[in-house]
Nucleic acid binder design. Structure first.
Lengths: 122, 122
DNA sequence: TTCGTTGTACTACTACAATAATACAACACT
DNA sequence: AGTGTTGTATTATTGTAGTAGTACAACGAA
């Protein structure tokens, strides 16, 4: 099943975002073996090189650890995962507020709009 | 004074976003002459071709009108500007909620985070 | 040992955004 | 008439993202 991508951020970043969330959510548990580059690339229907770049991003964040040619493993450091979870939210909030202000939208107004939008969704 | 750009969205889109907001906010009043392509390009410190593309976007939205070789003019249709104002907010809210869900952030949680973030800002 | 899988590295190619440097016709103004 | 500004179009170049295809050394297991 090919993953779906959207927006204008680079594909590697979008893939890293998704895998990071899966790690944070425990889809790939702490210390467990991580799927192979080629397997993930096939699943996501992207080029192995693209997937590789995404995994390198997660390595640089300490979420993944490469064991030479034995494959990758999810970190066993609960602190790293916990920090990643916090950072994802903090970064997103910061980005969102900044973008909103650039569009002339006040944060309070944005919150109201979000609530109204969600209320009108099934 | 060169404008500042950030993020990974195309430059033309970012320029269009800024000019759209300026039109909505009345920086360029309804029916007024719009600055020349070259002048805007110089001000923003981008290539005239890039600025041209951004202006074409705003034309396609009906916010700008080209008068042949006499220059551009801001639309005199208040309805168009009003609709643009609404659409900017709606689109942003929609985009924000979708991105948040992709990161595993619930909209309500996001609203709280936004409030807390803004309270901690000067 | 042999085979398959692992991560990694490399080059080449395409697509696109942005820049650069012009060129041109239409219009306003002196 | 002549000059300058307007929007528009064209061609070439650069940089980056992604794809495609291949290659290689290290390791595990049969």
């Amino acid at each position: 099943m090919a993953w779906k991508f959207e927006g204008n951020s680079p594909l590697t970043v979008q893939i890293a975002d998704r895998l990071r969330r899966d790690i944070i959510d425990g889809v790939y548990p702490m210390g467990s073996d991580f799927p192979a580059v080629r397997a993930l690339a096939y699943e996501a229907a992207v080029n192995p090189n693209t997937m590789q770049k995404a995994l390198v991003i997660l390595e640089s964040e300490g979420l993944l650890i490469t064991h030479g040619t034995t494959g990758r493993v999810v970190t066993t450091d609960a602190e790293v995962i916990s920090l990643a979870r916090v950072r994802v939210r903090e970064d997103f909030v910061k980005k969102t507020v900044n973008e909103a202000l650039l569009l002339g939208i006040e944060p309070e107004q944005l919150c109201e709009d979000i609530r109204r939008y969600c209320d009108n969704q099934p």
